[in-house]
C-alpha cells in the first residue's frame, strides 16, 4: 500500500511537469517564427504577395520570373487563383486597375501554358529564391536558396523588356459578331455571357466591358477572369425582366436591350435563359 502511494506521486509529478513544459513551449514561449516560406503566409498576406508579383510582372514583363515567384506560394493552379483573386477584389469594391493587373498575369500564364513555346524558367527566372520543392533547373543557385545572375533582366538603361504589358484592348476595336438570347437549362443562372476573340478565333483576355441599367447604374467587368471557361470569356449575372446595355468602351461598341428570355424546358417547365454576345477583332 505504501509502495503504491510512492508510485502515484512520482507519476503525478511527471505529468505535472510535462503539462507545465508543454504549456510553456506551445503557448507562453513558442518557437520564434523566423526564416519561413511564402506559402506559410497568412491568407491575406498571400493575396498581397500575389498582387505584388502581378504588379512586378506588369512592370518588367518577365513571365518566367513571375512564374517562379508564384511557385513560392505553392498554389495548385496559379492562373485560376489569380483570376479568383481578381474577381474577389472587384466584388469587394477594390481598385479596378489592380484587378486588371491580376487578370493580365492570369491570362499570360494561361497563354503560356497553352503555348508549346513556353520558355524555360532557367533562362530568366533569375534572382527569385527557390521554393525548395521545384526542380533544380528552375532557379539554380550558387548557394542554397540564394540568387543567381539573371541575363534576361533588363539593364537600367534598357526599357524594352520593362515596357508595360500590352493589353489586348490596345489592338483594333472589336466589332459585334452575334448578340442573341439563349435557352440553356444547364446554365442554372441568367447570365449575360460575352466571348471576345481575335481574328484567329483565340480568346482575348482583359477586355473591359460596361453593363448598365441607366446612366447611374453601371458595372465594369473584364474578359479573362474565368480562364477555366475561356481566356476571352466574361459573364454577368442578369436580373430577369430588366433591359441591359452592354458597352465595349474602348471600341465604342454598344449593344442595347439585352434582356434574358423566358424559356421552356422539354418537360414544359419555364425557366430564365441567358444572353450571348460574341465580339471579335475584324483583322
Amino acid at each position: 500500500m505504501e509502495q503504491n502511494r510512492s508510485n502515484w506521486y512520482i507519476l503525478t509529478g511527471l505529468i505535472l511537469g510535462l503539462v507545465i513544459g508543454l504549456v510553456y513551449a506551445w503557448v507562453i514561449s513558442p518557437v520564434e517564427e523566423v526564416d519561413t516560406h511564402p506559402h506559410l503566409l497568412r491568407e491575406d498576406y498571400q493575396d498581397i504577395y500575389r498582387a505584388l508579383i502581378a504588379r512586378a510582372y506588369q512592370a518588367n514583363n518577365n513571365l518566367p520570373r513571375a512564374e517562379a515567384r508564384l511557385e513560392l506560394i505553392d498554389d495548385e493552379e496559379p492562373a485560376l487563383v489569380l483570376a479568383a483573386q481578381a474577381q474577389r477584389f472587384l466584388a469587394e469594391g477594390g481598385d479596378v486597375e489592380m484587378a486588371k493587373v491580376l487578370a493580365n498575369l492570369s491570362a499570360a500564364l494561361q497563354s503560356a501554358a497553352s503555348s508549346a513555346a513556353t520558355p524555360s524558367l532557367s533562362s530568366s527566372a533569375g534572382n527569385t529564391p527557390s521554393s525548395g520543392n521545384e526542380t533544380p533547373q528552375v532557379t539554380p543557385t550558387p548557394e542554397a536558396n540564394t540568387a543567381q545572375p539573371n541575363q534576361n533582366t533588363p539593364t537600367p538603361g534598357e526599357e524594352g523588356p520593362s515596357a508595360p504589358t500590352s493589353t489586348p484592348t490596345e489592338s483594333p476595336p472589336f466589332i459585334l459578331q452575334d448578340s442573341s438570347p439563349i435557352c440553356d437549362p444547364t446554365l442554372g443562372e441568367s447570365l449575360i455571357q460575352v466571348i471576345a476573340t481575335n481574328s484567329n478565333g483565340e480568346g482575348v483576355p482583359g477586355v473591359a466591358l460596361e453593363i448598365s441599367l441607366g446612366p447611374d447604374l453601371t458595372e465594369v467587368f473584364y474578359t479573362g477572369l474565368k480562364p477555366e471557361v475561356g481566356l476571352g470569356y466574361a459573364d454577368f449575372l442578369a436580373e430577369p425582366g430588366l433591359a441591359y446595355t452592354l458597352e465595349v468602351p474602348e471600341s465604342g461598341l454598344v449593344i442595347q436591350d439585352i434582356e434574358v428570355p423566358t424559356c421552356t424546358s422539354e418537360s414544359g417547365n419555364s425557366y430564365w435563359g441567358g444572353w450571348e454576345v460574341y465580339i471579335t477583332h475584324p483583322n
Binding site: 511527471l14 505529468i15 511537469g17 510535462l18 503539462v19 507545465i20 513544459g21
Partner: peptide, 8 residues
C-alpha cells in the same frame, strides 16, 4: 516535476 518539465 523538473524531469517532466524538461521533457515537455
Amino acid at each position: 516535476i523538473l524531469l517532466g518539465l524538461g521533457l515537455g
